[in-house]
């Protein structure tokens, strides 16, 4: 097996607020292989966005802080430099080796600079291109993401672009420096459903045409996961509950939370009066249960779930579940 591109080990990102410490991400471990599309799925507040922002070290500090863990990218521990307040390391990687697409295309572009300036900016910054070369490359990238008459539109401002077009610009910007990892934080949530599919397809297409970057796709939409991802990480309350490849997740989910998520999806061809839901609400991050964080809503709860936090177990090769019900696979 190839070496992983990115290893996240025991990542803990806490927010210190007046109400107390919110453990938004509390001990997350996963790996991203070169070229793969890894989905992180979970409800709002499950820590998926914080995880991605932690990798980029874009957590607003204060109140947020990465308190523990290692993020090893291409053999370098990014958090070692972070702890020594040396931000040059991440600065050279951001936008260059790892780039990011955000949820809000409407506000993620600077309103007072032209599209061309904004796409060319990282090329000048990281690749040392002169403004002319950077501009030419920016036009190429914009053509690649399907912006018609890119050479003219490069001089336009973000407000002259629609939401879908802006997200294309964001993709062009993110992929312009040939990154090896692209983090997409709910890239389609703010878009129309018809545009969503286009944007996802485009991401995969452009990825294939360029440096075959690995994609870390953050979403709450199981359908998006099913369409695009190779492997899936299911998060709940700042912890990973289940990791498996996409087929396994959809066909034999083991964690009651994953099962609940899948059961809540409407199925084509089946008429039901009401979609099933996961009962209850996500517990407050300030007041998580002692044991399994899902125990307050779990329909298969055991007595020990409330007091003993479950460990991650590997039930079959590559399939990890954090649940007392999961049976570890027999070691060969």
């Amino acid at each position: 097996m190839a070496n992983p591109l990115l290893q996240v080990k025991n990542l803990k990102t806490y927010f210190r607020t007046e109400a107390g410490v919110a453990k938004a991400v509390d001990g997350v471990d996963f790996e991203v292989m070169p070229g793969e599309v890894l989905g992180i799925v979970g409800e709002s507040g499950s820590g998926k966005s914080v995880t991605s922002l932690s990798i980029m070290q874009l957590i607003p500090n204060p109140p947020g802080e990465i308190v523990d863990g290692n993020i090893i990218f291409e053999g370098t521990d990014l958090l070692a430099a972070y702890r020594q307040k040396d931000y040059d390391v991440i600065r050279k990687i951001r936008g260059n080796k790892i780039s990011m697409i955000f949820q809000e295309p409407m506000t993620s572009l600077n309103p007072v600079f032209t599209i061309g300036d904004q796409v060319a900016e990282s090329l000048v910054h990281h690749k040392g291109l002169n403004p002319k070369e950077a501009r030419d490359h920016a036009v190429e990238m914009l053509e690649l993401v399907g912006i018609p008459s890119a050479r003219e539109r490069i001089n336009e401002y973000p407000h002259q672009f629609s939401g879908g077009m802006r997200q294309r610009v964001m993709i062009a910007m993110a992929l312009s420096c040939d990154p090896s990892l692209l983090i997409a934080d709910e890239p389609t949530t703010a878009l129309d459903v018809t545009i969503q599919a286009q944007i996802l397809e485009l991401m995969l297409e452009v990825k294939a045409k360029t440096s075959n970057a690995a994609i870390l796709l953050i979403t709450h939409d199981m359908a998006v996961i099913a369409e695009t991802c190779h492997r899936v990480v299911v998060m709940y309350c700042g912890r990973i509950q289940e990791i498996a490849d996409v087929k396994t997740i959809f066909h034999s989910p083991q964690h009651p939370y994953t099962q609940g998520l899948l059961a809540s999806l409407p199925k084509p061809g089946q008429k039901v009066r009401r979609l099933s839901t996961i009962e209850g609400i996500v517990p407050s991050l300030f007041n998580l249960p002692k044991g399994c964080s899902f125990c307050t809503r779990c329909n298969q709860k055991l007595d020990k779930c409330e007091t003993v936090p479950p460990e991650m177990v590997e039930t079959s090769p590559g399939h990890f579940v954090r649940c007392h019900l999961a049976k570890p696979m027999k070691s060969a």
Partner: peptide, 15 residues
């Protein structure tokens, strides 16, 4: 606090 500032940081630009 705007999103485009985060985008700018994500590009690797200095503070």
């Amino acid at each position: 606090g705007q999103d485009y500032v985060r985008t700018a940081f994500a590009k690797g630009l200095s503070e």
